[in-house]
Each structure stands twice: as C-alpha cells, then as structure tokens.
C-alpha cells in the first residue's frame, strides 16, 4: 500500500473521531477491583465462612496460615496489577514476572504444610481427604470472580491478550484459593494440594483459551 492509501486511512479515521472516555490509569483500576473484591470476600467469609473449622485446622500454626494466605493474596494483587498494566499499550513486560515470587512462596508454604501434616499423621497425611469439593469451590469461585475481571480487562482491548489473560487467570485462581482457606474444613494433604494446583492450572488455561472471546483484543 502507498502513502496515498495511508492518507485515505487517516481521512476515514478522522471522520469517525467520536468522543471516547479515557480509561483510568491501570493501577488505579486494579486497585478499585481489589477493593471491591476485598469487601465482597470479607462479607462472604463473615456470612458463610467456616471460621471455627479454620481455627481448629491451623491451631498452633497460625503464623503459617497467615503467611500462606498472605502469599496467595500477594499473588492475586500482583497478578491483577500486571494484567491491568499490560492491558494498555506500553505496559512493562516486567509485570509478567512480578507475581512469580509470591506464587512460588504460596506453593512452597502449602507444600511445607502438607509435609508437616505427613510427619504428624504418617500415611494418613498423604492421601486425599477431600472429596473434590475444594476443586469445585475453586472452579466456582473463579468463575464468579473471573467473569467481571475479564470484562474489566476487555475494556482496554489489550494488544497482548495471552499475557493479560494468563495474569488475570492467575489472579482469579489465587483469589479463589485465598477464599478457600476460610471454607476448607480439613487440613490439606499432598494429594489435595496437587488437586488445588490442577484447579489453578485449569483456571489459568481456561482464561488463556478464552482470551480472544473474552478480551476482544484490538
């Protein structure tokens, strides 16, 4: 195509210059999302959470529980911030690595908790205790959180939908995992943890697969 054709493109675009409302800065949008999610999560935990069960489960290991939940929340916060930052042109790709340390800490602390359980219970601390409810909880909570998150991300028409969807999916999975802490009635064994990780992978993969449909990339 030629410079003449470029002039034609410019003329047609200028003719379609309808007013648009600039999006707020990405981190500001992420902050608002986290605030709303936080308020809704606290309300859900107070109304429906199994706080007594959690206190029993983490008796004597409160600091471990707080560190584990903190790592999940840090993963969610950094992943959401990264997704919003990368959804607009010019966002730093360093955001792709930002949630990684928190994610590794989350997995490491969860693994350490399972190992500790195995030491205390012997073989009983190895096999699956749950009946799949936790995986269903993770998937259900992720769907509830993920739909509005993907809609918010899609407003920017991201140029790199895969990166945005992957980070958004990780944020959603981490949020669901943090919520699960308050609804899980029993200690997590190694097999349970494997199922949790599988659920996280499924959530991230679904978000990545739905990227074109959900994010409407430009």
């Amino acid at each position: 195509m030629t410079g003449r054709a470029t002039e034609d493109v410019i003329a047609s675009l200028a003719a379609e210059a309808s007013p648009v409302r600039p999006l707020a800065p990405p981190l500001s949008r992420a902050g608002r999302l986290l605030l709303v999610l936080g308020l809704l999560s606290v309300a859900t935990i107070i109304l429906l959470g199994d706080l007594d069960g959690m206190a029993t489960r983490y008796a004597g290991r409160e600091s471990m529980m707080m560190a584990e939940t903190g790592a999940m929340l840090a993963t969610a916060i950094l992943a959401f911030c990264g997704a919003f930052a990368l959804s607009v042109p010019g966002g730093s790709r360093a955001w792709l690595a930002a949630p990684l340390p928190a994610f590794l800490l989350w997995i490491g602390l969860s693994g350490a908790g399972c190992y500790d359980l195995m030491l205390r219970r012997g073989l009983g601390g190895w096999g699956a205790v749950g009946d799949g409810d936790c995986v269903l909880f993770l998937l259900g909570a992720s769907a509830a959180v993920g739909v509005p998150v993907l809609w918010l991300l899609s407003r920017a028409r991201p140029l790199e939908p895969l990166a945005v969807a992957t980070l958004g999916g990780l944020g959603v999975a981490a949020t669901a995992a943090a919520l699960l802490q308050f609804f899980h009635p029993y200690a997590v064994t190694l097999i349970d943890l494997a199922f949790h990780l599988l659920a996280v992978l499924i959530i991230v993969a679904v978000a990545a697969l739905l990227r074109r449909l959900a994010l409407r990339p430009a």
């Binding site: 195509m1 470029t6 675009l13 379609e16 648009v20 600039p22 999006l23 140029l159």
Partner: peptide, 29 residues
C-alpha cells in the same frame, strides 16, 4: 506502510487507553 496503516487502525480502537498528560511515544511505539 502496511504495518503503519494497521497500527493506525489499532490506535483508533484503543485511543481511549491513552491517559491525557502522559507521553505519547511509548504508547504509540
């Protein structure tokens, strides 16, 4: 020229992502 025209069309679709007052060049690049 093809890429520039494609970029102009994309710019049109995402022009709402530019934050007034911020540098244009990194956004455009």
């Amino acid at each position: 020229e093809d890429v520039v025209q494609d970029a102009l069309l994309t710019l049109h679709r995402v022009r709402h992502t530019y934050q007034p007052g911020r540098p244009v060049r990194p956004w455009l690049a």
